[in-house]
Design a protein around this nucleic acid. Structure first.
Lengths: 157, 157
DNA sequence: GGATATGGCACTAAAATGATGCTGTTTCCG
DNA sequence: CGGAAACAGCATCATTTTAGTGCCATATCC
């Protein structure tokens, strides 16, 4: 439904929390307790982020996780990829239709348009750092302009 | 998994096909046959688009669907909303947590950031017309810039 | 050596999705 | 008139994905 999974959600909660305490080692227990979320599930997400190299873990009694990188260096796209894979907006892209022989091609009228949507979304996430998720300038804009001949991602590309 | 549903995919296929034949009435059979997709499922998607006012239907032997509006007037966001609802990137947003009492608030560190992501994606879709999905200027851009202090949607808002 | 962490699987239950069945209504055409 | 073709509306069922846990191993501190 065009929605992040719980795993991603939990991972983001953990990352933001850890970023607030840059450098410190914080346990899953503490984070889960703070936000009243499943300790186990949060743990699974942080494990995944650790395997992806975004976190470093410390075992043992006073163990826990800490950021492996500065918040400026972590892209949202990297986080999402670690927790639920890269988004593939159409089945064409997940099913390896190209190699398997997509029976819609070469007539498929949506594939490249959808790919543009996907790439635009992905690029947004690539350009959004964990830092940007923490800071809260948030002055969300006015009404979108009327949708006449607007191209998809009109950023001079 | 941050992915459109099949219903949306089929709906987009139908819309693009119908836009190619602006004004003409085209049957589900023909569209499904062209792209070798499920006639029934495609039919369900087009029914939904019809209920949403994006298509007009004509019953009977030579019946089918045609666009109710010009491709320039239809936003991708409208299409997606009709076929799978507005995207809610976190469960906070679907569960009506605010009224029900989100037990993560007021500590939830991700809610507003995620909302910004969601709004940015949604705005992209609002600004993308069906026309833009048809036209294929497609000169997809170079490498994304390094992700230092980039804000989410730096469009002068 | 016991308590408290993470690490790594594997498994089950619930929810979302994909696909289809059935019946009714409208329209064309012979 | 009556049958065929096409949409309308629901409802059902199978599959896939997701959410949530269980279990045990390993590491660390005290």
């Amino acid at each position: 439904m065009l929605q992040f999974t719980k795993s991603t959600e939990y991972g983001l909660i953990g990352l933001v929390h850890l970023a607030d305490r840059r450098g410190e080692v914080v346990s899953v227990r503490e984070i889960a307790g703070t936000y009243k979320i499943s300790r186990r599930h949060l743990g699974e997400s942080l494990k995944a982020l650790c395997r992806a190299g975004l976190l470093k873990s410390q075992r043992g009694v006073h163990g826990g996780y800490r950021l492996a990188l500065e918040p400026e260096q972590v892209a949202l796209s990297t986080i999402v990829a670690a927790l639920e894979g890269e988004p593939a907006l159409t089945s064409c892209e997940t099913d390896h239709a190209e190699s398997a022989g997509c029976h819609v091609e070469p007539h498929c009228p949506i594939r490249s348009p959808i790919q543009r949507i996907r790439q635009g979304l992905w690029r947004q996430m690539e350009q959004t750092s964990l830092r940007a998720l923490i800071d809260e300038p948030l002055a969300l804009p006015g009404a979108p302009s009327p949708i006449e001949h607007l191209n998809l991602f009109p950023r001079g590309n």
